[in-house]
Simulated assay, not measured.
Amino acid sequence: MDAAAAAPRILANHRGVAFDLVRAIGSVECVVALEALEAYFWLEPGASDARTLKCFGDGYQRITAIAARKALAHPAATIELTSSDFARGR
């Protein structure tokens, strides 16, 4: 992971993992929903925070690639990734 970015963190409501997408023009806060990690990154339901962050780290390259594409297509202050963002053909 990029050393300049803040460490990924579990949302207070435990519905996702927040992370910073660092780009040449600045950083954007992103959130990947836990349901997406469960559906596409083999996170088991009810997993611990440590396991959730490990799963996020394992899928980091794919997650950030999709976040970057979404940020280019739909610029926003916060990018939210759901299962539909990881579906084939998107």
Rank of each mutant, 00 (worst) to 15 (best):
A5V: 01
A6K: 15
A6C: 14
A7N: 12
P8F: 10
R9L: 13
R9D: 15
I10Q: 10
I10H: 11
L11M: 10
L11A: 09
A12P: 07
H14S: 05
R15N: 09
G16P: 14
G16L: 03
A18E: 15
D20H: 06
D20F: 09
L21D: 12
L21S: 04
R23H: 12
R23L: 13
R23W: 12
R23V: 11
R23N: 11
E29C: 11
C30D: 13
V31Q: 08
V31F: 11
V32S: 06
V32F: 05
A33V: 00
L34R: 05
L34P: 10
E35F: 00
A36R: 02
A36H: 02
L37F: 02
E38A: 02
E38P: 03
Y40A: 15
F41L: 01
L43G: 04
E44S: 09
P45C: 10
A47S: 15
S48F: 07
S48Y: 04
D49M: 00
D49T: 02
A50K: 08
A50H: 05
R51F: 05
K54W: 11
K54E: 15
C55T: 15
F56W: 03
G57K: 04
G57P: 06
G57R: 03
D58A: 06
D58F: 00
D58R: 04
D58S: 03
G59E: 01
R62M: 06
R62Q: 05
I63N: 11
I63K: 09
T64H: 06
T64P: 04
A65S: 15
A67T: 07
A67S: 08
A68R: 10
A68I: 08
A68W: 11
R69L: 07
K70T: 08
K70I: 12
A71F: 06
L72D: 15
L72I: 14
A73I: 04
P75C: 01
P75L: 04
A77P: 05
T78H: 14
I79H: 13
I79F: 15
I79T: 12
E80S: 12
E80R: 06
L81M: 07
L81W: 02
S83L: 09
S83W: 00
S84I: 03
F86H: 01
F86D: 13
R88Q: 13
R88K: 13
G89K: 05
